[in-house]
């Protein structure tokens, strides 16, 4: 446990020091977008990875968070500055409240139907954003820009997004170790059986859905504030969920580290490609290739595959994980119970 805690401490230290080392605004912007996606992927995984349900409508929470900040700033005539960050918890709250009806409807279905329903709800929200008066339709909303010195302009955004990320990772970690998380994992493996063992599956799923929506709403608001303007097609972009899902699958669905790794690899790649070649959609082709490679080579994602490979090397056992499962937790439980694995 100690080396893990030390590693975590080092990682946090590194992330904290990053803007001081890479002070170039181009890099810090990439870092902010990466932190936004790390948070989104982590939160998405807190629901999808543990429950086995794959939602492709989390951009609803991202967009709603973004519009919460934009509309609040507009209506309350706020000026750019640190005070605007106080709207971020409000954005999380709005996202969480929207997740309730969204989840109530979508979670009545399972598997493929669930995926399709979440996509449909996502398009409903996009249409609303285009057509409702409060969002100002396709003209979008301008958000007041803070008057900070250019050299360190990005730093407040960076550190506060890092704070939201820590919150999301802590939540994910906490859920995984709670009784509630065990119930989610049971739902993933056999929902009806879990129900027959007293698990109130409806409530458990809905709670996880709401929990996973809140940080996404918060980083949505952060995104809007950082960009300085918001339009329906960017706030409710269907590709958001595709990116987030790919990041999680790449790193490892249902693991805490996987979504972080996926976002760290793929989001800077996307930013780099966009900046380097000025073709905004080039990354989609690369994403397609990455997605195929992951499915073919390591369908469980990089983190679980690497872990198994390392363990196999260490113990000299043949590289054959018996089931699609999480052997890390197996070892942990074995340690608790003192029985040999």
């Amino acid at each position: 446990m100690l080396p893990r805690a030390a590693g975590l401490g080092l990682l946090l230290l590194g992330l904290g020091a990053l803007p001081l080392v890479l002070s170039n605004p181009t890099y810090t912007s990439i870092a902010i977008f990466t932190l936004i996606y790390m948070t989104a992927a982590t939160s998405w995984n807190t629901f999808a990875g543990y429950s086995g349900y794959i939602p492709l409508g989390h951009v609803v929470f991202f967009g709603s968070g973004a519009y919460t900040l934009a509309v609040a700033a507009q209506d309350w005539h706020l000026v750019g500055g640190y005070g605007m960050f106080l709207l971020i918890p409000l954005a999380g709250l709005v996202a969480g409240l929207l997740a309730l009806p969204f989840g109530l409807v979508a979670l009545r279905t399972r598997r493929h139907t669930f995926v399709v329903i979440t996509i449909a709800i996502m398009f409903i929200f996009q249409l609303l954003a285009f057509n409702l008066g409060v969002t100002n339709g396709s003209s979008g909303i301008q958000i007041p820009t803070p008057l900070w010195p250019a050299a360190t302009f990005n730093d407040p955004f960076y550190y506060i997004t890092l704070g939201i990320l820590i919150l999301a990772v802590a939540t994910s970690w906490f859920v995984r170790r709670s009784r509630f998380g065990l119930q989610l994992l049971a739902i993933r493996d056999d929902e009806d059986r879990a129900r027959g063992l007293g698990v109130r599956t409806g409530r458990v799923k809905l709670t996880a859905f709401v929990i996973s929506a809140i940080p996404v709403g918060m980083v949505g608001a952060m995104y809007a504030y950082f960009i300085g303007q918001i339009f329906p097609q960017f706030a409710f972009d269907p590709l958001f969920d595709v990116s987030v899902a790919l990041m999680v699958f790449f790193g490892g669905l249902g693991t805490v580290a996987g979504p972080l790794l996926g976002a760290v690899v793929l989001e800077p790649l996307q930013q780099y490609l966009t900046l380097q070649f000025s073709i905004g959609d080039l990354y989609l082709i690369i994403y397609g290739v990455v997605f195929l490679a992951v499915i073919l080579l390591m369908p469980r994602g990089v983190v679980p595959s690497t872990r198994d490979w390392l363990r196999a090397r260490r113990t000299g056992r043949p590289d054959a994980p018996e089931v699609e499962g999480d052997t890390d937790r197996a070892a942990e439980v074995a340690a608790h119970t003192g029985s040999p694995t």
Binding site: L185, A186, R188, D189, G325
Partner: peptide, 8 residues
């Protein structure tokens, strides 16, 4: 629950 341990 195939992917959970026996204990879980």
């Amino acid at each position: 629950f195939a992917r959970l341990t026996l204990m879980e």
